[in-house]
């Protein structure tokens, strides 16, 4: 038992030192600085999103997190994805969320802090999951890919309508139905109706 743990620990240490060696922190470059800054914003933003006691602030922190993620995509030279992230996530989803917050909550309202047992439970569950995932990831040696240029818009367009292997016309069509169905569903649920509610007495009222 002890030996297994010991060998596991040495394997972990070796992998970690290897990763840091490949990072070569003694020679800082621009991309490393940018990555660290973005990672800092993402981590801080995520933590504050879920712990902030004012909901509008939480939404603002989420906005910064999403922005930093778009920056990450830019760093990886996926400009198109960064643009999509900004327009759909930061521009679309977040605006909808902020709207609904303003519709449903008071600006000055503060949440009660969650009970201690729930925080502890959350910490244990999420923490152990994170620890396990990181251990597995660290121990995995991923194959080194060859650096290839990021896709340009023409390639993206062709692949999106391609019918062969690595063509995405079918998902593209199916997702249009998905959006239609979601639109109908959202309208049907949120639409104010003028119907008489008396036809069946509501037990909550």
């Amino acid at each position: 038992m002890m030996e297994t743990i010991q060998s596991f620990m040495t394997a972990m240490m070796n992998s970690v030192s290897e990763i840091f060696a490949s990072a070569d922190l003694t020679r800082p470059t621009w991309s490393k600085w940018i990555f660290m800054a973005l990672a800092g914003v993402i981590l801080l933003g995520s933590v504050l999103t879920v712990t902030s006691r004012r909901i509008l602030r939480a939404a603002t922190f989420l906005f910064f997190t999403l922005l930093a993620t778009a920056g990450l995509y830019l760093l990886l030279e996926y400009e198109f994805l960064a643009a999509v992230q900004l327009t759909v996530y930061a521009g679309g989803i977040l605006v909808v969320i902020v709207f609904s917050i303003l519709l449903t909550s008071h600006i000055s309202y503060r949440f009660d802090p969650p009970p201690v047992w729930r925080v502890l439970g959350g910490l244990v569950a999420a923490g152990s999951g994170l620890l396990l995932t990181i251990c597995v990831l660290v121990l995995t040696v991923f194959p080194k890919g060859v650096a290839a240029p990021a896709p340009d818009m023409q390639q993206v367009g062709n692949a999106l309508l391609g019918q062969d292997v690595h063509g995405y016309v079918l998902p593209f069509e199916v997702i249009s139905i998905l959006l239609l169905a979601c639109m109908i569903g959202a309208i049907v649920v949120a639409r104010k109706s003028r119907e008489p509610e008396a036809s069946q007495p509501d037990k909550t009222e």
Binding site: L178, A181, C182, I184, G185, A186, V188, V189, S193, E197, S199, Q200, D202, K203, T204
Partner: peptide, 15 residues
């Protein structure tokens, strides 16, 4: 699964 959620909330007069 997403449209089912909308269908589950279909009876708007019941909480």
């Amino acid at each position: 699964s997403i449209p089912v959620a909308a269908a589950a909330a279909y009876d708007k007069f019941r909480m």
